[in-house]
C-alpha cells in the first residue's frame, strides 16, 4: 500500500469519525443530508458483498466493517434517535435521491467488466458513490450557517477522493497492467463534484471567515 492510498483511507475514516462525533456528542445532524448518508450505506452494502468470500488483508476487512457499520449507524441515528432526528433539516434536504439509484444501476448493467451479480453490484457502487454527495452539496448551498464540523466532514470526503486519484497515478506507474477505467472515471467525476466546494472552503479559510456557499 502506498502513502496516497493510506492517507486517502485515513481521511475517509476521519470524515466518518467527524460526522459520528458531531451526531453522537452534540446530538445534532443539522446540515447533514440523510439522502447522501443513505446512498453511502447502499454504496458500501453493494460494494462489500465480497467481505466474507475474498480475504485480502485484516486491514481491508476491518475497514470494510467500519465503513459498513458507521454508514448504517449514521442513517439509524438520523432516522430513529429521538434527539438527533429533531435536528434533521427535512424541508431543506429535498434532493430526490432515488433518481440517482436507477440510472446508476442501469449504467452498471450496461458498462461493467464482467456480467456477474457481484461485479455488477460492485460497478453500481462505484457509479453511485460518484454522485452520492450531490444531495449533501445541495443542502450545503441552502444552509446559511454551515457549522465547522459539517464543513470539515465534506472537506475530508473530498480530500479522500483526491488522494485516491494520486494513489491510482502512483499505482499506474509502479504496478504492471494496472488499468481500471471504471473506477478511474467514476472517481474523477466524484472528485470534480467537490471542486466548487473546495474553492469556497479555501477562500473562507484564507480570509478567516465562516464558510458559506453562494446559492
Amino acid at each position: 500500500m502506498n502513502i496516497f492510498r493510506l492517507a486517502g483511507d485515513m481521511t475517509h475514516l476521519a470524515s466518518v469519525l467527524v460526522l459520528l462525533l458531531k451526531i453522537h456528542t452534540i446530538k445534532s445532524c443539522a446540515g447533514i443530508s440523510l439522502k447522501t448518508q443513505e446512498l453511502f450505506a447502499i454504496v458500501f452494502a453493494s460494494r462489500y458483498l465480497d467481505i466474507f468470500t475474498d480475504f485480502i488483508s485484516l486491514y481491508n476487512t476491518l475497514m470494510k466493517l467500519i465503513f459498513l457499520g458507521s454508514s448504517f449507524s449514521i442513517v439509524w441515528y438520523i432516522r430513529r434517535h429521538k434527539l438527533v432526528r429533531r435536528s434533521y433539516d427535512k424541508d431543506q434536504d429535498t434532493f430526490r435521491h432515488y433518481f440517482l439509484l436507477l440510472p446508476c444501476f442501469i449504467l452498471a448493467l450496461l458498462i461493467n467488466e464482467k456480467f456477474t451479480f457481484k461485479e455488477v453490484m460492485w460497478t453500481f457502487s462505484l457509479y453511485l458513490e460518484a454522485v452520492a454527495i450531490l444531495p449533501q452539496l445541495v443542502l450545503l448551498q441552502r444552509t446559511k450557517n454551515i457549522d465547522n464540523l459539517t464543513g470539515q466532514y465534506v472537506f475530508l470526503l473530498g480530500a479522500y477522493r483526491g488522494l485516491y486519484i494520486l494513489n491510482w497515478i502512483y499505482r499506474y506507474f509502479t504496478e504492471p497492467h494496472y488499468v481500471h477505467w471504471i473506477p478511474w472515471i467514476s472517481g474523477l467525476v466524484q472528485t470534480l463534484l467537490y471542486a466548487d466546494f473546495f474553492y469556497y472552503y479555501f477562500e473562507s479559510w484564507k480570509n478567516n471567515k465562516k464558510l458559506q456557499l453562494p446559492a
Partner: peptide, 10 residues
C-alpha cells in the same frame, strides 16, 4: 491480456 482485477481498494 489483463490480469484479474485486484479488489484491494476500499
Amino acid at each position: 491480456q489483463s490480469p484479474p482485477k485486484p479488489k484491494d481498494e476500499l
